[in-house]
């Protein structure tokens, strides 16, 4: 049941990609009309029907999409938001009701995750559909703007939106090639044995550093816990629940500082239209370093 519903949600997500492709194709003033159309069209197809296609073909399509982004063929077109005057007028007319659809995404998602066995992803899908209907009703907007504004935002976020998913695929390749083993062997050679503080620092800093390289604290956790956590922290009598969760949090400190964590740092910068694409990382770096030190202290004090 959940699988069927999830697949349905992926099909809707795919339709949004295809919609963006069609919108880009119709956009006469688009600077890179054909490349942009192909990119979003392929992404839409991969979402909608990718599950039924040989993964080798998906791999080939991804390479082709990579060629398109590398040659700068995927850009933003000429889709416009409404005018300042219109938005001012509408905001007075609609009033605070405009927040209801925005909040309903989360409320519906939570209700479904909490009270049914369908899970948060299906909940998010339902929440989005409900919110879209509510938004059309409360703002009295024509349904044609579903594709206009959906495409506008997706083109604005751009090709960076597929990066998280692509990085997960990279992680799978790294695993298949045995990269994790090489790293844990390398790090294991440097740490002095029997020193608890050195072990804690290596575990936390290793998590942060490896997360920065991989862009994913979950992927780093398995490797670094086996490579450093086990021999240098857990085997010295640490409380495993405390040491484990603090190590993962130390990894998050790395997440805050790396462009590899694109969905948290680079995509938001694009979504907020910052001038510097590393703006979010710049804002977060001081907090990340402080929290890394704090968590090293917490692990040393609380886990032993």
């Amino acid at each position: 049941m959940v699988d069927v519903l999830l697949e349905g949600i992926y099909i809707i997500a795919g339709l949004i990609g295809i919609m963006t492709a069609i919108t880009a194709f119709k956009d006469e003033g688009h600077p890179k009309r054909i490349g942009t159309t192909i990119f979003w069209g392929l992404l839409g197809l991969i979402f909608a029907v990718g599950r039924y296609v040989d993964p080798v073909i998906i791999g080939v399509l991804l390479l082709f999409m990579g060629v398109l982004t590398a040659t700068k063929q995927v850009t933003f077109g000429t889709l416009k938001n409404s005018t300042d005057e219109f938005r001012e007028k509408k905001s007075i007319e609609i009033g605070n009701k405009v927040f209801i659809p925005a909040l309903s995404i989360a409320v519906v998602a939570f209700a479904i995750a909490q009270f049914t066995s369908l899970g948060g992803l299906v909940g998010l899908g339902f929440g989005s559909v409900v919110a879209t209907i509510l938004a059309l009703a409360t703002t009295k907007t024509s349904t044609k703007y579903i594709s206009h504004d959906g495409s506008r935002l997706l083109q604005q976020v751009g090709s960076a939106s597929i990066l998280p998913q692509l990085l997960a695929a990279l992680g799978a390749l790294f695993n298949a090639a045995g990269v994790g083993e090489v790293i844990s062997q390398g790090i294991s050679g440097i740490i002095p044995e029997g020193n608890i503080l050195a072990g804690v620092i290596a575990y936390c800093a290793g998590m942060a550093l490896f997360t920065m390289i991989m862009g994913n604290a979950f992927a780093a956790f398995a490797v670094i816990t086996a490579g450093i956590g086990m021999p240098f922290v857990l085997s010295q009598g640490a409380n495993p629940a405390i040491a484990g969760v603090i190590a993962l949090v130390a990894g998050y400190c790395g997440t805050l500082m790396t462009p590899m964590a694109a969905n948290f740092n680079i995509v938001p910068a694009a979504v907020l239209e910052t001038k510097n694409k590393n703006r979010v990382i710049i804002a977060q770096a001081p907090v990340a370093v402080t929290l890394l030190v704090v968590n090293i202290v917490l692990m040393y004090v609380l886990a032993f």
Partner: peptide
């Protein structure tokens, strides 16, 4: 491997679904 992992991790890009409603609300102030 690349293609399979990309398909398996589609849930990471599920925020696509929320784009139309956010765009429409932005259009309306």
């Amino acid at each position: 491997t690349l293609g399979q992992a990309f398909i398996d991790n589609r849930y990471m890009t599920i925020f696509l679904l929320t784009l139309p409603v956010i765009g429409i609300l932005e259009r309306n102030g």
